[in-house]
Design a protein around this nucleic acid. Structure first.
Lengths: 199, 199
DNA sequence: GTCTATAGCTGGATAGAC
DNA sequence: GTCTATCCAGCTATAGAC
């Protein structure tokens, strides 16, 4: 009578839910106090369990970071999935940059985990990293589709858009001092990197 | 017979030398293993003393970071002191950006300490911070002298040049994948931010 | 000023009962 | 799976002898 498939599924669902709660709590903590502030004691307490229980779901602290990295990379890939395809390269690229900047500035801890590696001793696993690679490939392709191709031009775009994010986060968190420059920046970049001059 | 001025001066010099050695050792350590890897035990050992001796020269670990911040800010200010003043705005601005990028990429730990604040609980003192403010004011003035003025344009320059540094450090440390874009970037920025169109 | 010795704390991770 | 209890390592910082 025991071990029906439904019962097994239910147990697995319970386990997944508990694991998900730990991850959600971890995200709250790093958003609040930075990536360095994540400790297993506090994580356990905040999630309503004890430290050893955390080890029932994750092999180590870095395994938690790896799971978080995977979620972040997946979320990043999703922002690239449905970029617009209007007739205007300018409109398309503005949307692209806007979404990138929004993704980064809306969750600084996630941005740092994904792109700045500030945790000594942590390297994401290949599985967790894969969505990030996919997203970057898609970005390259999207740029090309909108008239910006060649490694040099792509590097220029990544540098400039990263700079916007970096300054916005460092010097005007929560504001729009740099995000409001997006249209200007896209115009400038397009004029200098487009395969064909703008119409 | 004791306490002549020369003797006092000699003792102070000894003290300063010991302090300077600790700071130099601290810089070596953070350059080697990152800002987070600086511990007082290792610092003491590497400098050939014991932990309590460090406290004879610095009140706390953050006092060490503050002294390092001061040195970094002073070094940054010095890179702004003798920027060229040729007839060409383009040449001047290329020199400016080159020096900025060189300053940042040649010592990543110093760059992070100055501009990214990755040490929880550490805020530089006003004295240590002052040279950095001076340097940024000078940069603003230098941009204006070369035909780039207005807060919006200055923000655009800082964002783009920061982006170059950021990408160079994160994705091609020791290389020149982004630094070689400097001339291109300055041309692009000048075309879009100059008060007067280039001759 | 420099040492030995240590306090006091916090971290990740584990043993073993239930 | 979850708990209590604990180990062990590393850290900043200090007390007190010399």
């Amino acid at each position: 009578m025991s071990k029906t498939t439904t019962e097994v599924g239910w147990r697995e669902a319970r386990r997944e839910a508990a694991r998900a709660k730990l991850l959600a709590t971890a995200w709250e903590m790093v958003r609040e106090n930075g990536l360095g502030a994540l400790t297993l004691r506090q994580l356990a307490t905040s999630a309503g369990v004890t430290t050893p229980t955390v080890y029932a779901y994750f092999d180590s602290k870095n395994a938690i970071f790896d799971a978080m990295f995977g979620e972040a990379a997946e979320a990043f890939a999703e922002t690239r999935a449905d970029l617009p395809d209007s007739g205007s390269a300018f409109d398309n690229l503005v949307a692209d940059v806007r979404r990138w900047v929004e993704f980064c500035t809306s969750d600084v801890a996630r941005y740092q985990l994904l792109f700045q590696r500030p945790i000594p001793g942590f390297e994401p696993s290949a599985e967790s990293y894969e969505p990030a690679v996919r997203a970057l490939d898609f970005t390259r392709e999207y740029l090309a589709r909108n008239g910006v191709s060649g490694p040099r031009n792509v590097d220029l775009w990544t540098a400039v858009t990263t700079g916007l994010v970096d300054q916005q986060i460092s010097n005007d968190p929560g504001g729009d001092r740099w995000t409001r420059l997006i249209e200007d920046v896209v115009r400038m970049l397009l004029a200098h990197t487009s395969d064909q001059p703008p119409e």
